[in-house]
């Protein structure tokens, strides 16, 4: 797994992660993770994938405050 700390995270990067862990394709940049059927267990898998791909460790509470690809991409970019 490569850690990319040079390019900013795009909502599409996070959309791809949501699609993989939720096992569904209908994910948009403004989709709410929990409304798509996500729960706290798979939310941690998103945070793990974000850390591997972007070198940013977000907390569970940060995830709860921004549970959309748009929101998370902003937090990832802000955290770098």
């Amino acid at each position: 797994m490569s850690t990319d700390t040079t390019t900013p995270a795009t909502p599409d990067d996070v959309v791809a992660i949501f699609r993989r862990v939720l096992q569904r394709e209908d994910v948009a940049p403004d989709s709410d993770f929990f409304q798509l059927g996500g729960d706290s267990l798979i939310a941690t898998r998103v945070l793990s994938a974000v850390a591997r791909a972007h070198g940013v460790e977000l907390t569970f509470d940060e995830f709860l405050l921004a549970p959309t690809p748009d929101g998370l991409a902003q937090r990832i970019t802000a955290a770098r």
């Binding site: 706290s40 267990l41 941690t44 898998r45 945070l47 793990s48 994938a49 850390a51 907390t59 569970f60």
Partner: peptide, 17 residues
């Protein structure tokens, strides 16, 4: 709140991955 334990979320996420 909820059932998520107060542990490092990335570490638990790594485990679940």
């Amino acid at each position: 709140d909820g059932r998520f334990p107060p542990l490092n979320a990335v570490a638990l996420g790594d485990l679940f991955e």
